[in-house]
Computed example of a mutant assay.
Amino acid sequence: MSLAFKNFCQYYDRVRKYTPMLAFHFSSMLSFMKGVNPIIINKNGHTKSKKWLFFTGYAAFAWSILFGSIHIYWAAGGAIGFEGRSMSEVLFIINLAAIVLSLLAAFIVLALVQEWGEKIPTWILLMSTWITFAVLGLRGGVGIAQSILQEDSTPLLSIIIEPYFLLGGILFGLSAFLYYYANTKEKTGENK
Score class of each variant (00 low, 15 high):
Leu157Glu: 10
Gly137Val: 03
Ser69Met: 12
Leu53Arg: 04
Thr56Ile: 06
Ile120Ser: 02
Ala79Glu: 06
Leu104Asp: 02
Leu126Met: 06
Thr188Asn: 13
Tyr73Asp: 04
Phe177Arg: 07
Thr129Asp: 05
Ser86Asn: 10
Ala62Leu: 15
Thr132Pro: 05
Phe54Thr: 07
Ser102Thr: 06
Lys6Asn: 12
Ile80Ala: 08
Phe107Pro: 00
Phe5Glu: 10
Pro163Phe: 08
Gly117Ile: 02
Asn44Ala: 08
Gly141Trp: 12
Met1Val: 10
Trp116His: 09
Leu174Gly: 02
Arg85Thr: 06
Leu167Gly: 04
Val90Ile: 13
Gly35Met: 15
Val113Pro: 03
Lys185Phe: 05
Ile94Phe: 05
Tyr179Ala: 07
Gln150Arg: 08
Ile41Pro: 06
Gly35Ile: 11
Glu89Met: 05
Asp152Glu: 10
Arg14Pro: 00
Ser49Tyr: 05
Ala60Glu: 07
Ala98Gly: 01
Ser27Lys: 14
Phe32Trp: 15
Leu104Gly: 00
Thr122Pro: 00
Phe55Trp: 12
Ser88Leu: 04
Leu178Phe: 09
Asp13Glu: 15
Ala23Thr: 06
Leu22Lys: 10
Ser49Asp: 07
Gly169Arg: 00
Phe8Trp: 06
Tyr18Asp: 13
Leu104Trp: 13
Gly168Ile: 03
Ala62Ser: 14
Lys51Arg: 09
Glu186Leu: 14
Glu151Ile: 04
Val36Lys: 15
Val113Glu: 04
Leu110Cys: 06
Thr56Lys: 04
Trp116Ile: 11
Ser175Trp: 01
Ile99Arg: 00
Arg139Tyr: 03
Cys9His: 11
Phe24Ile: 09
Leu112His: 15
Leu136Asp: 00
Cys9Pro: 01
Ile160Leu: 14
Ala134Val: 12
Ala106Met: 07
Ala75Val: 00
Gly78Ser: 05
Ala182His: 02
Gly140Val: 11
Gly77Met: 01
Asp152Thr: 05
Phe92Ile: 00
Gly57Val: 10
Lys192Tyr: 10
Ser64Trp: 00
Leu149Val: 08
Ser175Lys: 04
Trp130Ser: 05
Ile93Lys: 03
Tyr181Cys: 03
Thr154Pro: 01
Phe67Met: 06
Trp130Cys: 08
Tyr181Ser: 08
Glu89Gly: 04
Ile159Pro: 00
Ile160Cys: 04
Ile40Lys: 12
Ile94Val: 12
Lys119Leu: 10
Thr47Met: 04
Leu149Gly: 08
Lys187Arg: 14
Gly141Asn: 10
Ser153His: 10
Phe5Pro: 02
Ala23Cys: 13
Tyr58Leu: 11
Gly45Gln: 07
Ile41Arg: 11
Trp123Leu: 06
Phe24Lys: 15
Leu53Trp: 02
Gly117Asp: 02
Ile160Gln: 10
Trp116Lys: 10
Asn183Cys: 03
Val15Tyr: 08
